Simulated scan of single mutants.
Amino acid sequence: MSILANKKVIIIGDRDGVPGQAIEECVKTNSDATVVYSATECFV
Rank of each mutant, 00 (worst) to 15 (best):
12 I>V: 15
29 T>E: 11
4 L>W: 01
31 S>K: 03
10 I>P: 00
42 C>I: 08
1 M>R: 02
4 L>Q: 03
4 L>F: 15
38 S>Q: 05
15 R>A: 15
31 S>W: 02
35 V>D: 06
41 E>D: 11
15 R>W: 13
18 V>W: 03
32 D>C: 05
29 T>W: 11
2 S>Q: 06
33 A>Y: 01
7 K>I: 02
21 Q>W: 03
41 E>P: 01
3 I>W: 13
36 V>G: 10
17 G>R: 06
13 G>T: 12
6 N>P: 11
13 G>H: 04
31 S>I: 02
20 G>I: 11
20 G>L: 07
9 V>Q: 04
22 A>E: 13
30 N>Q: 15
10 I>V: 15
14 D>Y: 07
7 K>C: 04
25 E>R: 06
9 V>E: 04
35 V>T: 12
36 V>T: 13
32 D>W: 09
21 Q>C: 07
14 D>P: 00
39 A>I: 11
23 I>D: 01
18 V>L: 11
43 F>P: 00
30 N>H: 12
19 P>W: 03
22 A>Q: 05
16 D>W: 05
21 Q>E: 12
18 V>E: 15
38 S>A: 10
21 Q>D: 14
37 Y>M: 07
15 R>H: 12
32 D>R: 05
7 K>S: 04
19 P>F: 05
1 M>T: 03
22 A>N: 09
30 N>L: 12
30 N>T: 05
18 V>G: 07
34 T>M: 05
34 T>L: 07
24 E>W: 02
8 K>W: 10
19 P>L: 11
37 Y>N: 09
40 T>M: 10
16 D>Q: 10
44 V>F: 15
34 T>P: 03
2 S>V: 00
41 E>V: 12
40 T>Y: 03
14 D>N: 13
7 K>H: 15
40 T>W: 00
21 Q>M: 07
22 A>I: 12
41 E>R: 07
37 Y>T: 01
44 V>I: 12
24 E>N: 13
35 V>R: 08
19 P>V: 14
7 K>F: 06
1 M>H: 02
1 M>F: 05
17 G>K: 04
24 E>G: 10
28 K>E: 03
35 V>M: 08
5 A>K: 13
27 V>S: 07
44 V>H: 09
23 I>G: 02
36 V>H: 09
29 T>N: 14
44 V>M: 10
25 E>A: 14
38 S>F: 00
9 V>M: 10
44 V>R: 08
35 V>G: 05
3 I>H: 10
13 G>K: 01
34 T>V: 14
2 S>R: 01
6 N>T: 06
16 D>I: 04
21 Q>K: 06
41 E>W: 07
18 V>Y: 04
15 R>K: 09
36 V>N: 10
3 I>V: 12
19 P>D: 15
2 S>P: 00
14 D>S: 14
